[in-house]
């Protein structure tokens, strides 16, 4: 299974990379997030390729995709759906909202009201929505990629820490490196390739991979290492509140997915280190500087010995 997942991963990454140039690491992390069954928060400036990443991923995995632009007047019903009276049938009929898609891109999630935010986040957590007393399951796999703009915070509703916790990872795409940017500028618009992008994985394979993640082995000494990492964040003088046990479990789940993508059926310290920052940075309530949390995480990784 592990070798197969590696091949599939490579195929998906290759397809996405043909559209989103030079962001292989972010693509892999986003994929790990999907394998692990979590949701992804991308925090970056406009025009860095957030939407492209989501679209390319949807196409390369073959997921049904929709994009919701979050605005301050968006209502929960606009996402979840609404029952409309059908005169022909003389009954209310449920019209599912955009959330009934496999990959939902929630753009600028912090622009909408907390009420709408929590409707989305609840759906993310439960994997189902309840409308008018009826529980409707969401499609499988269900993967939300939310974006938020770190700048121009006026008129926004920043997500509280407890809701940030619903996202398995937070990514920052960042500017492309010079080589990739030159390629981007000289070639045709990569988005045009989106339409022709074939999928690199069947739904069955994806389900198998997601099932295989939990079977990736985690040895005792690795658990010990992870626990020491968590303990370090709790005892560090610079961090007010360390990573919670749920955060630790999220790290482990992501690391398993990462190991699987690398073609291994066991986790090694490097897997933990690869996913630790995207999984933990947004769970650290620290103030002061945009990248302070990342720096503290890096410091933690540098300080704690692997054995």
């Amino acid at each position: 299974m592990s070798k197969e997942s590696q091949q599939i991963t490579e195929a998906i990454v290759e397809r996405v990379e043909s559209v989103l140039v030079g962001k292989q690491h972010s693509v892999r992390l986003a994929l790990a997030c999907l394998y692990a069954g979590g949701h992804l928060l991308i925090e970056d400036l406009p025009g860095m390729g957030k939407t492209t990443l989501a679209q390319a991923l949807a196409a390369a995995i073959g997921l049904s995709y929709t994009r919701v632009q979050f605005t301050s007047d968006l209502l929960p019903a606009d996402i979840i759906g609404v029952s409309v009276y059908d005169r022909n049938k003389a009954s209310f009929e449920f019209h599912p909202g955009p959330i009934f898609n496999q990959l939902v891109l929630a753009d600028e999630i912090n622009r909408t009201t907390p009420k709408t935010q929590s409707a989305l986040l609840e759906a993310m957590a439960e994997g189902q929505v309840s409308v008018e007393g009826e529980t409707r399951p969401l499609p499988q796999p269900f993967y939300v990629i939310a974006t938020q703009n770190p700048l121009s915070q006026s008129g926004t509703f920043p997500l509280p820490e407890s809701q940030l916790d619903r996202f398995l990872m937070r990514l920052r795409l960042g500017y492309p490196d010079p080589e990739a940017e030159r390629q981007l500028l000289s070639g045709a618009d990569p988005r045009s390739k989106l339409a022709t992008l074939s999928r690199g994985v069947t739904p069955l394979q994806l389900a198998a991979i997601q099932g295989a993640v939990s079977r990736v082995k985690v040895s005792e000494s690795l658990v010990d290492y992870l626990q020491r990492l968590l303990q370090f964040t709790r005892s560090s003088a610079d961090i007010d509140y360390g990573i919670s046990p749920r955060g630790g479990m999220a790290v482990l789940k992501s690391a398993r997915a990462w190991a699987l993508m690398d073609g291994r059926d066991y986790v090694i310290p490097e897997d933990i280190q690869a996913v630790f920052s995207p999984v933990c940075a947004h769970r650290l309530p620290v103030s002061g500087g945009e990248h302070r949390a990342e720096n503290l995480i890096q410091q933690t990784l540098n300080s704690v010995d692997i054995i």
């Binding site: 090694i268 310290p269 490097e270 280190q273 540098n302 704690v304 692997i306």
Partner: peptide, 9 residues
């Protein structure tokens, strides 16, 4: 070896 450096790195 740096303290936080895994065997593979």
């Amino acid at each position: 070896r740096e303290p936080g450096e895994g065997p593979r790195d």
